[in-house]
């Protein structure tokens, strides 16, 4: 009996916490996304009053509607935000892969006594504040910043380039911040690779380069896929990078949601944006989950 109670508590405590603070809030977001904005505290209507019981719940349900979602489809701002989030996340993922692959490859090929140090050097920036790392780029990229000073000093350009507050700055920020997420899975798949396979390919007449395309690259595919998802999924909902490095015409959905909530104080529309963002993310998340499961099965 005692054991049963212990088990109940063991499962119950974390379950209850996550249920109350993770699942229930989503229910509330969904409900508010169907409500109307109001000048009140809290700024939406209808509100649910526990004391009114069943009748109150019925009255509440009657008042909910899809108005906010219709509004979202009619206003261009939201379409552009979703589409450009997808575009920016996709381009950044490709760029991160192009920069991360040679890095991970060289780490995996480094002398084995060097590898722990290299690995730690990749992980270390991940522990330092995200905000600070994004901030560091402002001083480099702005019009009178170091990059422009350098380029003008060398004589490549005569007038400073506008880099900060453009999509280019956002790409740089995302690649910089998420590079470790790409390198780590790539490294772990490249490091496990059996070197004799490459030798076999070369014995059979492959040049080093064609052996890379035919052997190394296909074998590192699980790492490429995992790394790409780990960059793509969080990049879609990113707020800090587009807000600090991007310009006013850089529309990303995380930024739009933030503005809707903090500047326009329109909680129902912000909630509707959140629900749609979640729907947008479910596809890549489920694909990622499936791929991870397959990779695990392949290992066993």
């Amino acid at each position: 009996m005692d054991k049963k109670l212990g088990r109940l508590l063991l499962i119950g405590i974390p379950y209850f916490w996550l249920f109350l603070l993770f699942l229930v809030p989503f229910g509330i977001v969904l409900k508010i996304s169907l409500s109307d904005v109001a000048v009140a505290i809290p700024p939406y209507t209808p509100t649910f009053d526990l004391e009114s019981g069943w009748e109150g719940l019925k009255a509440l349900l009657v008042e909910l509607d899809f108005e906010n979602y219709i509004w979202l489809t009619e206003d261009d701002l939201y379409w552009t935000s979703y589409l450009s989030s997808l575009r920016i996340a996709f381009v950044s993922t490709v760029l991160t892969l192009l920069i991360g692959y040679p890095l991970a490859y060289s780490m995996a090929k480094a002398p084995s006594e060097w590898r722990p140090t290299l690995l730690m050097l990749i992980i270390l920036p991940f522990w330092t504040s995200f905000l600070i790392r994004v901030y560091a780029w402002i001083g480099i990229l702005k019009t009178e910043g170091l990059l422009n000073q350098l380029l003008m000093f060398v004589g490549i350009i005569d007038d400073p380039l506008q880099i900060l507050n453009t999509d280019t700055a956002v790409y740089i920020g995302i690649v910089y911040s998420y590079l470790p997420f790409m390198v780590l899975p790539l490294y772990s798949s490249l490091e496990k690779m059996d070197g004799s396979l490459l030798e076999a390919a070369q014995d059979l007449g492959c040049t080093a380069i064609s052996a890379f395309w035919k052997v190394t690259l296909p074998l590192s595919m699980p790492g490429i896929i995992a790394g790409s998802f780990l960059v793509f999924i969080p990049a879609i909902g990113e707020f800090v990078i587009p807000d600090l490095l991007g310009g006013s015409d850089t529309k990303m959905i995380g930024k739009t949601l933030w503005a809707e909530f903090f500047s326009n104080r329109d909680w129902p529309v912000a909630s509707a944006v959140a629900v749609l963002l979640l729907l947008l993310l479910i596809v890549p998340i489920v694909l990622f989950q499936k791929q991870q499961e397959r990779a695990q099965e392949a290992e066993q």
């Binding site: 969080p234 909902g237 990113e238 995380g254 949601l257 909630s271 959140a274 998340i285």
Partner: peptide, 11 residues
């Protein structure tokens, strides 16, 4: 994998 804006808003 949840975007922070969603977690923040929902909480």
């Amino acid at each position: 994998v949840m975007p922070e804006v969603i977690t923040g808003l929902s909480l």
